[in-house]
Design a protein around this nucleic acid. Structure first.
Lengths: 245, 245
DNA sequence: CGGTGTCTTGAATACCATCAAGTCTTGTGG
DNA sequence: CCACAAGACTTGATGGTATTCAAGACACCG
């Protein structure tokens, strides 16, 4: 994103335990925090096992969480028991940029796989970010990207048929994983811990219907999906299903 | 939002022609721009007649627009000819906070009624905002609110039935208008220039179906809607339709 | 080994879209 | 000022997409 990031090779020992292996470094502000000559920020590494919640809507957070490893999701529960997933969170993601300023989250966050995340002191992290112009710029980019993805989801849910939504979700996730180096050997094969009900809650469908759409994609030889692993066998046709290009 | 805003009565003469009457002042950063002792920013007031576009997705904006009067909408056109409205823009609204940093809009903006807006020089406006802490704070609040509304729309489109979506849209618009003093005498009667196809494109339905839902609300004595004017006759039942409270 | 969670498949149903036709309003040019 | 066209609204009939309901197979875990 900036020269400072690119200049620091992945293998450089990081200032905090675990950072050397943490995918976060390359894609988020952690790089600036850990790599800067400034004093370490007050923070705490926390671990959450799969299916447990990191925090709920009604909580008040005294710290700002950033995902270090694993997959999580942010979602809103509705009174009828259903829920809408707002976004999937990957290593390096701010849970939400708004949490830097507002301690009350507007959604709850749940671990999909085992998750580790860092909880930074809000005031210190804010000072640090606004003290370094390149970090402030990065925050702005994170925020813009967050909004852009929300708008994409609005378009999908409002105007696209079911098959298209599922195809787009898959393509976007694969793209995000590849950017993080989380796709094995740069191929189209990735670890994919999502259950079908996760996909359903993300794209506004029922698990039953998602199942039918996925088996269509499988039978068509477009994807392979089993054992928590996804391979895009025919990217061209998958993009066609998604009405892309 | 801050003491500076509250301390400045609505009747105070503003620094720019039209500002005294402009609803914008109370709800946006214009107050800080116009009311500050600093030099006026480079800006230009522009007028657009109903149904014309302010700018398109592919444009590159050298200035940052803020709506002064009238209703507008931001939307994305799809390849099949349909479109998704991302938000309705009222006086005082930033078209999008991201435009402060990125000259390329991610959506096109169209006037619903006749619209006037101010186009600020990006660099100057940015400097001014970040030069005054209370203005920076206001920008953050605008941005948080923008994201919050996008998330609400995602929930509506993903998980709520049609009648609920329409009822929620109406309630949110009335609430925003009331905050701006755009509701006649604080009653539930407001000017309402939206066509049914606007509502349809906003909540992901067809105009035909929106029509049927609106006539249901009318026949139930819940709203009155005619001649570009909306009255919420039975707020309690409207909220019930919207699954609120 | 029972229980729970996940995936799969088929059948019936509901919701919303599409199609079509007609009325009414608004705007425009002769 | 009127005639005409275009846009907006209304309503009913029909159809398709996705939901709901139901039942069974499978894996994993305590």
């Amino acid at each position: 994103m900036t020269a400072a990031v690119a200049a620091r090779p992945r293998s450089t020992p990081a200032q905090y335990p675990g950072c050397a292996e943490c995918l976060t470094r390359v894609f988020s502000i952690c790089d600036f925090i850990g790599g800067s000559p400034l004093a370490p920020l007050a923070q705490e590494v926390r671990t959450v096992t799969a299916r447990r919640t990191l925090f709920r809507e009604r909580d008040v957070l005294d710290s700002v969480p950033i995902i270090c490893s694993g997959w999580a999701l942010s979602a809103v529960m509705l009174s009828d028991g259903s829920r809408q997933i707002l976004s999937f969170l990957l290593p390096g993601d701010f849970v939400s940029a708004a949490l830097l300023f507002d301690p009350k989250p507007k959604c709850s966050v749940e671990a999909i796989t085992n998750v580790t995340y860092r909880a930074f002191n809000r005031a210190e992290l804010k000072d640090r970010i606004f003290g370094k112009p390149e970090m402030a710029e990065m925050l702005v980019n994170v925020w813009i990207e967050e909004k852009r993805r929300a708008d994409e989801l609005i378009i999908d849910l409002g105007r696209r048929p079911a098959a298209e939504r599922v195809a787009r979700l898959i393509l976007r996730l694969v793209e995000r994983l590849q950017k993080r180096g989380m796709a094995a050997g740069g191929s189209f094969e990735v670890e994919f811990p999502l259950r079908q009900h996760h996909i359903a809650d993300a794209v506004g469908l029922t698990p039953v219907h998602v199942n039918k759409l996925l088996t269509d994609l499988r039978r068509g030889g477009i994807i392979r999906l089993s054992e928590r692993s996804l391979a895009v066998l025919d990217p061209v046709r998958l993009r066609a299903v998604a009405s892309l290009r």
